[in-house]
Every structure is written in C-alpha cells, then in structure tokens.
C-alpha cells in the first residue's frame, strides 16, 4: 500500500483518530505525531522537509491538554512504517501485542481480568 500522493492535514485527519491493528483490534487513539529532526538555525535553500516518523500516544495527551511536554524517552511510539492505511481510522500492519504502548492493557489482562473465571470465553 502506498499513498498515491494523497494530501492530508494532521490535526484534521490524524490526531485523535482511532488506531486499529492488523486484526482490527483497537490499539489507541493518536495522541500526537513525531516528525524527523530539523536543522538548527536558518534552513539553507533546498532543506528537505521533515517526515512523520512515529504516531505517539500516552503521557503526551496530558501535555497536549495542559501544556509542557514529556521527555522524549517517555513517548510511546508506533513507527510510521507500521501504518498501512489512513481513513476514518488508521490501520496498522502489525499486531497490537508487538507494541510497547499496550502494556497497561496486557497488565490488566494478566493480573485482573484474566484471573476472573469466564474471562477468556466468548459471551453466551
């Protein structure tokens, strides 16, 4: 899947949208996006434009609302190369299990919900 030169506006078309993994399992909402680094100081003519490197989620949502920004090490990322499709949702080409940012879901699954009888069965 490529993109065919499609144009989109980040706030309008990506931020706060739902991200689904390759099995359509919801992963997160897009809390922010990360761009490749820019040169310091004035840009010489012909400076290549930055590209989107990652979708970002987690603590950055709070700082988007209240200001400030979390340290780069605390950003939870999904690499842009794992994005397969851009529509009213963003589809990934990988499984949510492979993503670090789902650790809270896994923790709740393992320590709470998975321990209650019937939790791993289909509803009847």
């Amino acid at each position: 899947m490529t993109g065919g030169g499609k144009t989109f506006d980040a706030v309008l078309h990506i931020l706060d949208r739902q991200v689904l993994d390759v099995d359509k399992l919801p992963v997160t909402a897009v809390d922010d996006i990360e761009l490749s680094d820019l040169p310091e100081g004035p840009f010489p003519d012909g400076t290549p434009a930055p590209v989107i490197t990652n979708l970002v989620a987690g603590a950055v949502l709070a700082t988007r609302m209240f200001g400030g920004r979390p340290p780069s090490s605390r950003l939870k990322r999904i690499a842009w190369r794992h994005v397969a499709e851009l529509g009213t949702v963003l589809r990934l080409n990988i499984h949510g299990e492979d993503l670090d940012l789902l650790w809270t879901e896994r923790w709740v699954h393992r320590h709470i919900i998975g321990r209650i009888p019937g939790g791993s069965h289909d509803p009847q």
Binding site: M1, T2, G3, G5, A49, V51, W80, A84
Partner: peptide, 22 residues
C-alpha cells in the same frame, strides 16, 4: 495545522508511503 503529502517511498509493501511535511 500541518499539511502532509504521501509521496515518499513506503518502508515496505505493507506500509503507507512516507508522509512529507508539505
């Protein structure tokens, strides 16, 4: 807002094209 265009090379066959700041 920031406008992007999907015209870079995709990282793999299953990926979307790179999104360049337009």
């Amino acid at each position: 807002d920031a406008r992007f265009v999907l015209d870079g090379l995709p990282a793999s066959e299953a990926s979307l094209a790179q999104a360049r700041l337009y």
